[in-house]
Write a protein that binds this DNA or RNA. Structure first.
Lengths: 195, 195
DNA sequence: CGCCGAGTTGAACTGAATCAAGAAACGTGG
DNA sequence: CCACGTTTCTTGATTCAGTTCAACTCGGCG
Protein backbone atom coordinates (compact mmCIF):
# COMPACT_ATOMS: atom_id res chain seq x y z
CA UNK A 1 0.00 0.00 0.00
CA UNK A 2 1.27 3.43 -0.92
CA UNK A 3 2.17 5.70 1.94
CA UNK A 4 -0.47 8.20 0.85
CA UNK A 5 -3.15 5.64 0.13
CA UNK A 6 -5.47 6.86 2.89
CA UNK A 7 -5.21 10.41 1.63
CA UNK A 8 -6.02 9.26 -1.89
CA UNK A 9 -8.99 7.27 -0.64
CA UNK A 10 -10.23 10.22 1.34
CA UNK A 11 -10.04 12.59 -1.62
CA UNK A 12 -11.81 10.07 -3.81
CA UNK A 13 -14.53 9.58 -1.21
CA UNK A 14 -15.22 13.31 -1.12
CA UNK A 15 -14.95 13.96 -4.81
CA UNK A 16 -14.17 11.06 -7.15
CA UNK A 17 -11.66 11.78 -9.89
CA UNK A 18 -9.34 9.83 -12.21
CA UNK A 19 -6.55 8.11 -10.34
CA UNK A 20 -3.86 9.88 -12.33
CA UNK A 21 -5.23 13.22 -11.17
CA UNK A 22 -5.45 12.09 -7.58
CA UNK A 23 -1.83 10.92 -7.75
CA UNK A 24 -0.76 14.25 -9.09
CA UNK A 25 -2.56 16.07 -6.32
CA UNK A 26 -1.31 14.02 -3.42
CA UNK A 27 2.24 14.30 -4.72
CA UNK A 28 2.20 17.83 -3.35
CA UNK A 29 1.21 16.80 0.15
CA UNK A 30 3.99 16.50 2.70
CA UNK A 31 4.14 14.53 5.88
CA UNK A 32 4.10 16.26 9.24
CA UNK A 33 3.85 14.45 12.53
CA UNK A 34 2.94 15.90 15.90
CA UNK A 35 3.37 14.80 19.46
CA UNK A 36 0.58 15.00 22.01
CA UNK A 37 0.04 18.64 23.02
CA UNK A 38 1.87 20.02 19.99
CA UNK A 39 0.29 23.02 18.32
CA UNK A 40 -0.73 22.70 14.65
CA UNK A 41 -1.81 26.32 14.43
CA UNK A 42 -1.44 29.08 16.97
CA UNK A 43 -3.94 31.89 17.47
CA UNK A 44 -2.63 35.09 15.92
CA UNK A 45 -0.78 33.33 13.10
CA UNK A 46 -2.14 33.08 9.59
CA UNK A 47 -3.22 29.52 8.91
CA UNK A 48 -1.00 28.52 6.02
CA UNK A 49 -1.41 24.76 6.09
CA UNK A 50 -4.26 22.58 5.02
CA UNK A 51 -3.95 19.29 6.91
CA UNK A 52 -5.34 15.90 6.17
CA UNK A 53 -5.33 14.13 9.53
CA UNK A 54 -4.55 10.52 8.73
CA UNK A 55 -4.29 9.42 12.32
CA UNK A 56 -4.82 11.27 15.57
CA UNK A 57 -7.13 13.57 17.43
CA UNK A 58 -7.12 17.37 17.68
CA UNK A 59 -8.95 20.10 19.49
CA UNK A 60 -9.67 23.58 18.14
CA UNK A 61 -10.16 26.34 20.67
CA UNK A 62 -10.30 30.05 21.14
CA UNK A 63 -10.68 32.49 24.03
CA UNK A 64 -13.88 34.36 24.70
CA UNK A 65 -13.82 38.05 25.74
CA UNK A 66 -13.44 37.03 29.38
CA UNK A 67 -10.39 34.94 28.60
CA UNK A 68 -12.07 31.56 28.98
CA UNK A 69 -10.82 28.74 26.81
CA UNK A 70 -13.70 27.64 24.56
CA UNK A 71 -13.45 24.52 22.43
CA UNK A 72 -14.95 25.17 19.00
CA UNK A 73 -14.27 21.82 17.37
CA UNK A 74 -12.71 18.41 17.61
CA UNK A 75 -11.38 16.40 14.69
CA UNK A 76 -10.30 12.82 14.40
CA UNK A 77 -8.65 10.55 11.85
CA UNK A 78 -9.56 10.92 8.21
CA UNK A 79 -10.64 14.53 8.36
CA UNK A 80 -9.40 17.82 6.96
CA UNK A 81 -8.09 20.17 9.63
CA UNK A 82 -7.41 23.87 9.17
CA UNK A 83 -8.82 27.26 10.14
CA UNK A 84 -10.98 28.07 7.20
CA UNK A 85 -11.36 31.80 7.62
CA UNK A 86 -7.72 32.49 8.37
CA UNK A 87 -6.53 30.20 5.61
CA UNK A 88 -8.59 31.65 2.78
CA UNK A 89 -8.69 35.27 3.89
CA UNK A 90 -5.02 35.30 4.89
CA UNK A 91 -5.76 36.91 8.24
CA UNK A 92 -4.53 35.90 11.71
CA UNK A 93 -6.36 32.92 13.12
CA UNK A 94 -8.64 33.46 16.08
CA UNK A 95 -8.20 29.82 16.97
CA UNK A 96 -5.55 27.43 18.09
CA UNK A 97 -5.37 23.83 16.90
CA UNK A 98 -3.77 21.41 19.30
CA UNK A 99 -2.95 17.71 19.09
CA UNK A 100 -4.61 15.68 21.84
CA UNK A 101 -2.82 12.53 20.69
CA UNK A 102 0.18 11.94 18.45
CA UNK A 103 -0.94 12.93 14.95
CA UNK A 104 0.12 11.85 11.51
CA UNK A 105 -0.85 14.45 8.93
CA UNK A 106 -0.35 15.23 5.26
CA UNK A 107 -0.47 18.89 4.44
CA UNK A 108 -0.19 21.44 1.67
CA UNK A 109 0.38 25.17 1.95
CA UNK A 110 -1.94 27.89 0.76
CA UNK A 111 0.18 28.48 -2.33
CA UNK A 112 0.24 24.82 -3.17
CA UNK A 113 -3.51 24.60 -2.83
CA UNK A 114 -3.90 27.58 -5.15
CA UNK A 115 -1.61 25.87 -7.58
CA UNK A 116 -3.66 22.68 -7.49
CA UNK A 117 -6.87 24.64 -7.95
CA UNK A 118 -5.31 26.23 -10.99
CA UNK A 119 -3.72 23.15 -12.48
CA UNK A 120 -6.54 20.73 -11.69
CA UNK A 121 -9.81 22.59 -11.63
CA UNK A 122 -11.72 19.49 -10.55
CA UNK A 123 -10.00 19.71 -7.22
CA UNK A 124 -11.95 22.89 -6.56
CA UNK A 125 -14.98 20.66 -6.16
CA UNK A 126 -13.17 18.81 -3.44
CA UNK A 127 -12.35 22.08 -1.69
CA UNK A 128 -15.87 23.31 -2.00
CA UNK A 129 -17.31 20.09 -0.67
CA UNK A 130 -15.09 20.26 2.41
CA UNK A 131 -16.21 23.83 2.94
CA UNK A 132 -19.89 23.02 2.53
CA UNK A 133 -19.70 20.02 4.83
CA UNK A 134 -17.95 22.08 7.47
CA UNK A 135 -20.66 24.68 7.17
CA UNK A 136 -23.44 22.10 7.44
CA UNK A 137 -21.96 20.64 10.61
CA UNK A 138 -21.63 24.04 12.21
CA UNK A 139 -25.21 24.83 11.31
CA UNK A 140 -26.46 21.69 13.03
CA UNK A 141 -24.44 22.55 16.07
CA UNK A 142 -25.85 26.06 16.20
CA UNK A 143 -29.39 24.76 15.96
CA UNK A 144 -28.78 22.26 18.72
CA UNK A 145 -27.38 25.04 20.96
CA UNK A 146 -30.62 26.93 20.46
CA UNK A 147 -33.16 24.15 20.78
CA UNK A 148 -31.65 21.31 22.74
CA UNK A 149 -31.03 20.92 26.44
CA UNK A 150 -27.52 20.28 27.72
CA UNK A 151 -28.35 16.61 28.25
CA UNK A 152 -29.66 16.18 24.71
CA UNK A 153 -26.51 17.74 23.32
CA UNK A 154 -24.42 15.47 25.50
CA UNK A 155 -26.24 12.33 24.37
CA UNK A 156 -25.98 13.37 20.75
CA UNK A 157 -22.25 13.93 21.03
CA UNK A 158 -21.81 10.64 22.83
CA UNK A 159 -23.64 8.81 20.07
CA UNK A 160 -22.02 10.54 17.12
CA UNK A 161 -18.48 11.10 18.43
CA UNK A 162 -17.78 8.72 21.29
CA UNK A 163 -14.03 8.99 20.69
CA UNK A 164 -14.10 12.57 21.92
CA UNK A 165 -14.75 11.27 25.43
CA UNK A 166 -11.72 9.09 25.17
CA UNK A 167 -9.22 11.80 24.29
CA UNK A 168 -10.53 15.17 25.44
CA UNK A 169 -10.91 16.29 28.99
CA UNK A 170 -14.18 17.13 30.61
CA UNK A 171 -13.86 20.89 30.71
CA UNK A 172 -13.08 21.03 27.01
CA UNK A 173 -16.02 18.86 26.08
CA UNK A 174 -18.13 21.02 28.39
CA UNK A 175 -17.17 24.26 26.68
CA UNK A 176 -17.79 22.63 23.31
CA UNK A 177 -21.28 21.67 24.48
CA UNK A 178 -21.85 25.11 25.96
CA UNK A 179 -22.11 24.07 29.60
CA UNK A 180 -19.83 24.26 32.62
CA UNK A 181 -17.70 21.29 33.52
CA UNK A 182 -19.68 21.02 36.76
CA UNK A 183 -22.92 20.57 34.85
CA UNK A 184 -21.43 18.12 32.41
CA UNK A 185 -20.15 16.01 35.27
CA UNK A 186 -23.67 15.86 36.72
CA UNK A 187 -25.30 15.18 33.36
CA UNK A 188 -22.94 12.31 32.76
CA UNK A 189 -23.70 10.83 36.17
CA UNK A 190 -27.48 11.07 35.71
CA UNK A 191 -27.25 9.63 32.25
CA UNK A 192 -25.14 6.62 33.18
CA UNK A 193 -27.46 5.97 36.12
CA UNK A 194 -30.54 5.74 33.87
CA UNK A 195 -29.42 2.90 31.67
CA UNK B 1 -27.55 54.24 -14.08
CA UNK B 2 -27.79 50.73 -15.40
CA UNK B 3 -30.58 48.61 -13.99
CA UNK B 4 -28.05 46.12 -12.65
CA UNK B 5 -25.64 48.71 -11.29
CA UNK B 6 -26.14 47.72 -7.66
CA UNK B 7 -25.47 44.09 -8.49
CA UNK B 8 -22.30 45.06 -10.34
CA UNK B 9 -21.16 47.21 -7.43
CA UNK B 10 -21.85 44.40 -5.01
CA UNK B 11 -19.86 41.87 -7.00
CA UNK B 12 -16.99 44.32 -7.33
CA UNK B 13 -17.04 45.03 -3.61
CA UNK B 14 -16.73 41.32 -2.82
CA UNK B 15 -14.20 40.46 -5.47
CA UNK B 16 -12.96 43.18 -7.82
CA UNK B 17 -12.66 42.25 -11.49
CA UNK B 18 -12.49 44.02 -14.85
CA UNK B 19 -15.70 45.76 -15.74
CA UNK B 20 -16.10 43.78 -18.95
CA UNK B 21 -16.10 40.57 -16.97
CA UNK B 22 -18.57 41.91 -14.46
CA UNK B 23 -20.88 42.94 -17.29
CA UNK B 24 -20.70 39.52 -18.80
CA UNK B 25 -21.55 37.91 -15.48
CA UNK B 26 -24.48 40.09 -14.55
CA UNK B 27 -25.95 39.64 -18.01
CA UNK B 28 -26.99 36.19 -16.86
CA UNK B 29 -28.89 37.45 -13.82
CA UNK B 30 -32.64 37.83 -14.17
CA UNK B 31 -35.03 39.99 -12.25
CA UNK B 32 -37.51 38.45 -9.84
CA UNK B 33 -39.70 40.46 -7.55
CA UNK B 34 -41.58 39.23 -4.50
CA UNK B 35 -44.49 40.54 -2.50
CA UNK B 36 -44.45 40.57 1.28
CA UNK B 37 -44.93 37.01 2.59
CA UNK B 38 -43.97 35.40 -0.72
CA UNK B 39 -41.76 32.35 -0.50
CA UNK B 40 -38.37 32.48 -2.24
CA UNK B 41 -37.57 28.87 -1.38
CA UNK B 42 -39.75 26.26 0.24
CA UNK B 43 -38.49 23.56 2.58
CA UNK B 44 -38.32 20.24 0.76
CA UNK B 45 -37.46 21.78 -2.59
CA UNK B 46 -33.96 21.86 -3.98
CA UNK B 47 -32.64 25.40 -3.88
CA UNK B 48 -31.98 26.17 -7.51
CA UNK B 49 -31.67 29.94 -7.40
CA UNK B 50 -28.89 32.13 -6.16
CA UNK B 51 -30.40 35.52 -5.31
CA UNK B 52 -28.84 38.90 -4.99
CA UNK B 53 -31.28 40.85 -2.84
CA UNK B 54 -31.13 44.39 -4.19
CA UNK B 55 -33.92 45.70 -2.00
CA UNK B 56 -36.00 44.07 0.69
CA UNK B 57 -35.84 41.94 3.78
CA UNK B 58 -36.15 38.17 4.16
CA UNK B 59 -36.30 35.60 6.91
CA UNK B 60 -34.90 32.07 6.74
CA UNK B 61 -36.50 29.48 8.98
CA UNK B 62 -36.84 25.80 9.64
CA UNK B 63 -38.78 23.57 12.01
CA UNK B 64 -37.15 21.83 14.93
CA UNK B 65 -38.06 18.21 15.79
CA UNK B 66 -40.98 19.44 17.92
CA UNK B 67 -42.41 21.38 15.01
CA UNK B 68 -41.46 24.82 16.30
CA UNK B 69 -40.64 27.47 13.76
CA UNK B 70 -37.00 28.52 14.29
CA UNK B 71 -35.51 31.49 12.49
CA UNK B 72 -32.01 30.67 11.32
CA UNK B 73 -31.17 33.91 9.50
CA UNK B 74 -32.32 37.28 8.31
CA UNK B 75 -31.03 39.05 5.24
CA UNK B 76 -31.45 42.59 4.02
CA UNK B 77 -30.65 44.66 0.96
CA UNK B 78 -27.35 44.11 -0.79
CA UNK B 79 -26.82 40.53 0.31
CA UNK B 80 -26.72 37.13 -1.34
CA UNK B 81 -29.64 34.91 -0.36
CA UNK B 82 -29.84 31.15 -0.95
CA UNK B 83 -29.68 27.89 0.94
CA UNK B 84 -26.06 26.94 0.60
CA UNK B 85 -26.23 23.26 1.39
CA UNK B 86 -29.27 22.52 -0.75
CA UNK B 87 -27.98 24.60 -3.61
CA UNK B 88 -24.54 23.05 -3.91
CA UNK B 89 -25.39 19.53 -2.88
CA UNK B 90 -28.61 19.45 -4.90
CA UNK B 91 -30.62 18.06 -2.02
CA UNK B 92 -33.98 19.23 -0.64
CA UNK B 93 -33.69 22.33 1.49
CA UNK B 94 -34.35 22.05 5.19
CA UNK B 95 -35.21 25.71 5.27
CA UNK B 96 -37.75 28.11 3.92
CA UNK B 97 -36.90 31.62 2.76
CA UNK B 98 -39.69 34.13 3.05
CA UNK B 99 -40.00 37.80 2.08
CA UNK B 100 -40.85 40.02 5.04
CA UNK B 101 -41.13 43.05 2.77
CA UNK B 102 -41.50 43.43 -1.00
CA UNK B 103 -38.20 42.25 -2.47
CA UNK B 104 -36.36 43.09 -5.65
CA UNK B 105 -33.87 40.36 -6.53
CA UNK B 106 -31.53 39.38 -9.33
CA UNK B 107 -30.93 35.67 -9.57
CA UNK B 108 -29.15 32.95 -11.49
CA UNK B 109 -29.84 29.24 -11.49
CA UNK B 110 -27.45 26.51 -10.43
CA UNK B 111 -26.63 25.68 -14.05
CA UNK B 112 -25.98 29.29 -14.87
CA UNK B 113 -23.67 29.63 -11.89
CA UNK B 114 -21.78 26.53 -12.98
CA UNK B 115 -21.51 28.05 -16.42
CA UNK B 116 -20.11 31.28 -15.03
CA UNK B 117 -17.65 29.39 -12.87
CA UNK B 118 -16.51 27.59 -15.97
CA UNK B 119 -16.42 30.54 -18.34
CA UNK B 120 -15.03 33.07 -15.88
CA UNK B 121 -12.89 31.34 -13.31
CA UNK B 122 -12.32 34.55 -11.37
CA UNK B 123 -15.94 34.45 -10.37
CA UNK B 124 -15.16 31.38 -8.30
CA UNK B 125 -13.37 33.70 -5.93
CA UNK B 126 -16.55 35.66 -5.53
CA UNK B 127 -18.49 32.48 -4.78
CA UNK B 128 -15.89 31.32 -2.31
CA UNK B 129 -15.81 34.64 -0.53
CA UNK B 130 -19.59 34.58 -0.09
CA UNK B 131 -19.30 31.10 1.31
CA UNK B 132 -16.50 31.97 3.70
CA UNK B 133 -18.25 35.09 4.93
CA UNK B 134 -21.43 33.14 5.54
CA UNK B 135 -19.42 30.61 7.50
CA UNK B 136 -17.68 33.26 9.56
CA UNK B 137 -20.97 34.87 10.52
CA UNK B 138 -22.44 31.55 11.58
CA UNK B 139 -19.38 30.82 13.65
CA UNK B 140 -19.72 34.09 15.52
CA UNK B 141 -23.35 33.35 16.15
CA UNK B 142 -22.56 29.89 17.49
CA UNK B 143 -19.97 31.29 19.86
CA UNK B 144 -22.37 33.92 21.11
CA UNK B 145 -25.02 31.25 21.75
CA UNK B 146 -22.50 29.42 23.90
CA UNK B 147 -20.94 32.26 25.83
CA UNK B 148 -23.33 35.19 25.88
CA UNK B 149 -26.47 35.82 27.89
CA UNK B 150 -29.76 36.44 26.15
CA UNK B 151 -29.50 40.13 26.88
CA UNK B 152 -26.00 40.38 25.44
CA UNK B 153 -27.16 38.66 22.27
CA UNK B 154 -30.11 41.01 22.06
CA UNK B 155 -27.97 44.11 22.44
CA UNK B 156 -25.51 42.86 19.88
CA UNK B 157 -28.25 42.21 17.35
CA UNK B 158 -29.78 45.59 18.05
CA UNK B 159 -26.47 47.29 17.41
CA UNK B 160 -25.45 45.36 14.34
CA UNK B 161 -28.82 44.77 12.65
CA UNK B 162 -31.33 47.31 13.92
CA UNK B 163 -33.42 46.90 10.78
CA UNK B 164 -34.39 43.40 11.88
CA UNK B 165 -36.49 44.94 14.65
CA UNK B 166 -38.27 47.03 12.10
CA UNK B 167 -39.40 44.20 9.83
CA UNK B 168 -39.47 40.96 11.78
CA UNK B 169 -41.85 40.08 14.51
CA UNK B 170 -40.85 39.44 18.06
CA UNK B 171 -41.27 35.68 18.14
CA UNK B 172 -39.06 35.27 15.08
CA UNK B 173 -36.32 37.46 16.49
CA UNK B 174 -36.65 35.50 19.72
CA UNK B 175 -36.14 32.13 18.06
CA UNK B 176 -33.19 33.56 16.15
CA UNK B 177 -31.67 34.68 19.45
CA UNK B 178 -32.45 31.35 21.08
CA UNK B 179 -34.92 32.63 23.67
CA UNK B 180 -38.69 32.58 24.03
CA UNK B 181 -40.72 35.55 22.90
CA UNK B 182 -41.74 36.09 26.53
CA UNK B 183 -38.14 36.46 27.58
CA UNK B 184 -37.29 38.72 24.70
CA UNK B 185 -40.18 40.98 25.59
CA UNK B 186 -38.85 41.29 29.13
CA UNK B 187 -35.27 41.80 28.01
CA UNK B 188 -36.34 44.57 25.71
CA UNK B 189 -38.28 46.28 28.52
CA UNK B 190 -35.40 46.09 30.96
CA UNK B 191 -32.97 47.31 28.35
CA UNK B 192 -35.01 50.33 27.25
CA UNK B 193 -35.59 51.21 30.91
CA UNK B 194 -31.85 51.37 31.62
CA UNK B 195 -30.97 54.09 29.13
C1' DC C 1 -67.90 47.05 16.76
C1' DG C 2 -65.76 42.94 17.88
C1' DC C 3 -62.38 39.74 16.92
C1' DC C 4 -57.76 38.08 16.41
C1' DG C 5 -52.89 37.93 16.46
C1' DA C 6 -48.93 40.17 18.58
C1' DG C 7 -46.90 41.60 22.50
C1' DT C 8 -46.77 42.24 27.65
C1' DT C 9 -46.93 40.99 32.34
C1' DG C 10 -47.20 38.04 36.56
C1' DA C 11 -46.30 33.79 39.32
C1' DA C 12 -44.36 29.52 39.73
C1' DC C 13 -40.95 26.53 38.23
C1' DT C 14 -36.57 24.54 36.49
C1' DG C 15 -32.15 23.75 34.15
C1' DA C 16 -27.87 25.22 34.60
C1' DA C 17 -24.43 28.45 36.81
C1' DT C 18 -21.81 29.64 40.72
C1' DC C 19 -19.19 28.92 44.73
C1' DA C 20 -16.86 26.01 47.66
C1' DA C 21 -15.15 21.78 49.38
C1' DG C 22 -13.65 17.03 48.69
C1' DA C 23 -11.97 12.86 46.03
C1' DA C 24 -9.46 10.85 42.43
C1' DA C 25 -5.99 10.76 38.93
C1' DC C 26 -1.66 12.25 37.34
C1' DG C 27 3.13 13.49 37.09
C1' DT C 28 7.44 14.66 38.99
C1' DG C 29 11.30 14.34 41.88
C1' DG C 30 13.46 12.11 45.61
C1' DC D 1 8.27 2.96 43.85
C1' DC D 2 6.39 5.94 46.94
C1' DA D 3 5.24 10.79 48.57
C1' DC D 4 3.57 15.11 47.50
C1' DG D 5 1.66 18.69 44.89
C1' DT D 6 -1.22 19.86 41.02
C1' DT D 7 -4.79 19.32 38.11
C1' DT D 8 -9.19 17.13 36.96
C1' DC D 9 -13.44 15.57 38.28
C1' DT D 10 -17.27 15.06 41.55
C1' DT D 11 -20.58 16.53 44.80
C1' DG D 12 -23.47 19.65 47.68
C1' DA D 13 -25.87 24.06 48.57
C1' DT D 14 -27.49 28.04 46.74
C1' DT D 15 -28.69 31.38 43.25
C1' DC D 16 -30.32 33.01 38.96
C1' DA D 17 -31.53 33.41 34.06
C1' DG D 18 -34.83 31.99 31.31
C1' DT D 19 -39.10 28.89 30.63
C1' DT D 20 -43.83 27.83 31.13
C1' DC D 21 -48.49 28.77 31.48
C1' DA D 22 -52.09 31.78 31.78
C1' DA D 23 -54.26 36.13 31.85
C1' DC D 24 -54.38 40.59 30.07
C1' DT D 25 -53.58 44.81 26.76
C1' DC D 26 -53.28 46.84 22.52
C1' DG D 27 -53.73 47.84 17.63
C1' DG D 28 -55.39 46.68 13.27
C1' DC D 29 -58.74 45.11 10.17
C1' DG D 30 -62.97 42.70 8.37
Amino acid sequence: MKEKQKLIDFIQSVFPMPLSNADEIVALFNLKEFEKDDILLREGRVCNEYYYLEEGFVRVYTFDPDGNDVTTAFASSNQIVFELFSFFKRVPSGETIQALTPCKTWFITFDQLQYIFHAMPQFREFGRTILINTYALLKQRTLSMIRKTAEERYVHLLETNPDIFQYAQLKNIASYLGVTDTSLSRIRREFSKNK
